[in-house]
């Protein structure tokens, strides 16, 4: 009897492939900053409502990740770093990613409106729109400032968390968003300098490729300097405190120092020590953002315990 040849269907997606569409690593940063925005707000929220609020923000962020993967499947296929993603590797069909992205976006926004308030839901809808349409579809392939402007979508979660609790927008939530917004360029570009990427081959205009590394180093330093006043200003609002102020001072000096080291050297020096200064700046940037938001949580806990001295 002849062999019965079956259609090769082993590539059919598993649950984990769909989960990978939601960019879980990006989601973790979103959950953390949205949670801090919610906790430091001066209004008490029922723990379960807070949980649902954060869940909606996380699902909304995941949905925008799925929409991004649907739109960018062509360039993801070309670049080495992204060629293993669910769509380029053939495990998930593009239409599935689009359907999942749209369905989860709708689900997250509607549930957030029902569970909390319309402003928080509106901000989440704007965040998804900004990431999927403004960043992915428009800016990413048209300007080297793509990650600067597109960074707004990554910066909005604390504002949504704050809106979940208070139903409004305030100076504090705007400053938390501004902190992440100004932090994104030095964080991303210090990585872009030392990672050998193939954005150029995929036709994505990254600053390192369109204007060179010298200009990128200048940009890192300029955004770092602009980041300092935003970071320090938060200390003098209602959510600031001694823990935050001390953390902000130490981390700003440290990050400023490491960005300065990246700025003042040339390519030969960087090649000589295998981009040690750039790698340090990238690592410090991660600690910078995490510790800023952790300090805000500590000050909120101190205030709740009656130990706030601000």
């Amino acid at each position: 009897m002849a062999d019965v040849s079956m259609q090769d269907t082993t590539r059919e997606a598993g649950m984990g492939d769909y989960f990978a569409l939601l960019k879980p690593r990006v989601m973790s940063l979103v959950i953390f900053t949205a949670l801090v925005g919610l906790i430091v707000a001066p209004v008490h929220v029922h723990p379960f409502i807070a949980f649902v609020g954060i869940l909606c923000v996380a699902v909304g962020a995941g949905a925008s990740g799925a929409l991004n993967m649907w739109w960018d499947a062509d360039i993801d296929r070309i670049m080495k770093r992204t060629s293993g993603r669910p769509i380029p590797s053939g495990r998930v069909q593009p239409e599935e990613a689009l359907a999942i992205g749209l369905a989860l976006s709708g689900f997250a926004v509607v549930l957030l409106a029902l569970a909390t308030n319309v402003l928080a839901a509106g901000l989440l809808a704007f965040t998804i729109f900004f990431y999927a349409v403004v960043y992915s579809m428009w800016l990413k392939r048209s300007t080297p400032q793509n990650i600067v402007i597109g960074g707004l979508s990554g910066a909005l979660p604390p504002m949504i968390g704050w809106a979940v609790a208070t139903g409004g927008v305030s100076l504090e939530s705007v400053l938390m968003t501004a902190l992440i917004f100004m932090w994104t360029p030095p964080h991303f570009w210090s990585l872009a300098i030392f990672v050998k990427s193939d954005y150029g081959r995929a036709g994505v205009p990254m600053l390192t490729e369109t204007h060179g590394r010298r200009v990128t180093r200048n940009h890192i330093m300029a955004y770092m300097v602009a980041l300092v006043p935003v970071s320090l200003a938060i200390a003098f609002t209602s959510i600031g405190g001694w823990t935050y102020l001390a953390t902000a001072i130490v981390m700003n000096i440290w990050f400023l120092k490491s960005c300065y080291a990246v700025w003042r050297r040339d390519e030969d020096a960087a090649e000589a020590d295998n981009f040690a200064a750039e790698k340090t700046a990238f690592k410090v940037s991660l600690a910078y953002l995490f510790l800023h938001f952790a300090a805000l949580m500590i000050d909120a806990a101190l205030r709740a315990a009656g130990m706030g001295i601000w």
Partner: peptide
């Protein structure tokens, strides 16, 4: 088939 177990996992998911 391996496919069946994968579908099974998806259904439970």
């Amino acid at each position: 088939h391996e496919l069946h177990s994968r579908r099974n996992g998806r259904n439970y998911g």
